[in-house]
Amino acid sequence: MGDIDLRHLRSFLAVARERSMTGAGAALHLTQQAVSTHVRNLERSLGVVLLVRTSRGVLLTPAGEELAAGGAAVVHDVDSLAERVRAVAGSQAGTLRLACCPAATSLFAVDTAEALEEAVPGLRVTLKGARHPRHELELLDDGQADAAFMWLPVGDVGLHHAVVRSDPRAVVLSDRHPLADRSTVTLADLADDPVVRPDVLTSPEAERFWIMDPRPGGGPAPRGPMVPSVEDCLLEVARRRGIWLPPRPLETLLPAGGLRWIPVTDGGNFDLAVVWNDRAPQPLITRLISEVRILTGHDQRLHAA
């Protein structure tokens, strides 16, 4: 005996009500042939005869009468469950506040906000610009934001995260650097170049990741000057005071003359994540992660890997 297909059960119940295949088809906006096929499949699945056809319509067998009596309650329960699920999904009105550094998330933050508001009636999504990653943590900590978009690692700061995008690493060089004409480089090629560090990262762990310390051979990464902002990194690199090792997409968001952005073949990826704390509305965070991953194609890339 197989499982009962809900579509087949609905067709049978319509036949039981109408006492006619044609009438059931009209009620369900299906052809008479489709209804007949559904009933035959249901009979085959249950291993019983449910109805017999006569010149004046159809008659239910005792098994058919039993299924008609109990099946209506099953369909009603399923429909009620579906309504409750939709009601829960649609009742999450209010405001979801997202902190983001424009350089990290401008490619999809607006699309994410609009997709969420469309998917959850009554929801308002606000985007709160942060000056740098440390500022994002401040907004989360003092309750001004429910979640943030941040590149990992953040450090041991008591937050939850879910990766929504992965970006390859690049090196930013002066166009007068000896490697400026290369199409790709390795970390070994950059072993002697000091790495510029923006004083905005959230932890020593984050700083080590951004400068790739230690290097693959175990040696330390040469530390270059510490500068106040991401934009200042570009100025220092242009003046040949060091290199920078950021995520590749920043090239389109931080244009600057006199520089080369070159892929680092063994530099690994930066993971961009939704980050939140225990006070955040978990159902909305779950929906946020889903919508962002759709926009960035993160899940599809994982499945293709």
Rank of each mutant, 00 (worst) to 15 (best):
H160P: 03
L201Q: 03
L284D: 04
R17H: 10
L42Y: 08
L159G: 06
R239V: 03
G64E: 14
H303Y: 09
R260T: 07
L107W: 04
D142R: 10
G122K: 10
R241P: 03
R97S: 11
E251D: 14
V110N: 11
P178Y: 11
P121M: 08
A256G: 15
D79I: 02
A82V: 12
G122E: 13
L107K: 13
V274Y: 09
L127P: 09
T22F: 04
A188L: 06
V48S: 11
P153G: 01
V157A: 09
R97I: 08
W210H: 02
C233K: 05
R239T: 05
M150L: 15
L253S: 12
L139N: 07
L107M: 11
R19C: 10
P214V: 00
A24K: 04
A16S: 10
A63R: 13
A206K: 05
A113T: 03
G155R: 05
P220D: 04
M226P: 00
I285K: 13
G70W: 03
T202A: 02
L235F: 08
A14L: 03
V163D: 10
S80E: 13
V110A: 15
V157M: 06
T95V: 15
A145M: 04
R40M: 12
D111L: 06
L250E: 11
L46E: 13
Q32V: 06
V171F: 01
A99Q: 02
M150V: 05
T95R: 15
L59N: 13
V164Q: 11
T186G: 07
L288E: 12
A69M: 10
D167L: 01
V52Q: 14
V74Q: 14
G218Y: 08
A27R: 04
P255C: 01
